[in-house]
């Protein structure tokens, strides 16, 4: 189990500052939801957390260890922090089960046979037992996203990041993916979500952070942030989406 601490995290693309001085603590077994308009910096912040984007300033601590040192090998960190993307990004030339096995096979040097029981169990748990040998283009969006979650979980990460994972789905498929998240929540997984599903955030999050123009404008437990926001802009945003 693990904790994640962000202190003064700043990230720019050229002259465009996307995150500026972000402080955030994710406790062990907590679920934190990042909300905010498109372009507010939620996705970039998530990508910074597992080092897909190098940060310009500030520190990121994983269990108290600085993982944002420039030049640090990002691979061991990424094995501990999984991420699931809005657009699934499954490997289209591999079946669902091959997608899930690739990283454990190559990184942990495990054989297919050794992995199969465990991976099969994951597929069963998320209602995908009969889809293991399908290719991504033979699966619905909801199924693909669940496979992507299984693929990330197969590496046994300590923290999971979810980047608007329901935004690309047809409305009737959103539920099955959110069920997976509920499941993970019950199992005690430490999670950070960028999401537009306000109902879901309100139902399950330990903490909700409202991002606006690259800063966390307001954070707090969901019942407080959703019912009694302090900032005008939080109120305006919530009025638009709720």
């Amino acid at each position: 189990m693990a904790t994640l601490d962000l202190k003064g995290v700043t990230k720019s693309f050229g002259r465009n500052t996307v995150c500026s001085g972000i402080d955030l603590t994710v406790g062990d077994g907590e679920m934190v939801c990042l909300i905010g308009a498109s372009g507010s910096g939620k996705s970039t912040l998530l990508r910074c957390m597992n080092l897909l984007e190098p940060i310009d300033d500030g520190v990121i601590l994983l269990d108290g260890v600085d993982i944002s040192v420039p030049g640090l090998d990002p691979q061991p960190v990424r094995q501990r922090i999984g991420i699931v993307f809005q657009s699934f990004n499954l490997f289209p030339h591999m079946t669902a089960v091959e997608n899930a096995m690739l990283a454990p096979r190559r990184v942990h040097k495990l054989t297919r046979e050794a992995l199969l029981p465990e991976i099969t169990h994951l597929f069963e748990r998320f209602g995908l037992a009969d889809r293991m040998d399908h290719y991504p283009d033979q699966l619905s969006g909801g199924q693909q996203q669940r496979v992507a979650i299984v693929r990330a979980l197969a590496m046994k990460p300590e923290i999971m990041l979810f980047d608007e994972i329901t935004s690309a789905l047809d409305p009737e498929l959103v539920g099955e993916v959110l069920d997976v998240l509920r499941h993970l929540r019950r199992a005690g997984m430490t999670m950070v979500l960028a999401t537009h599903e306000m109902g879901f955030a309100r139902e399950l999050a330990d903490k909700v952070c409202f991002l606006d123009k690259g800063v966390i404008l307001e954070e707090g437990p969901p019942e407080k942030l959703f019912t009694d926001p302090k900032e005008d802009r939080t109120r305006a945003f919530l009025a638009r989406v709720l």
Binding site: Q75, P76, Q79, G82, F91, L102, A103
Partner: peptide, 25 residues
Amino acid sequence: HSQRAAAASLGLGHSDTMRFVILPQ
């Protein structure tokens, strides 16, 4: 590039990403 990102996020190295993810496609 999202394919490279997906492979990297799983902890795969550059050569494994090339060999198993990018080249076959």
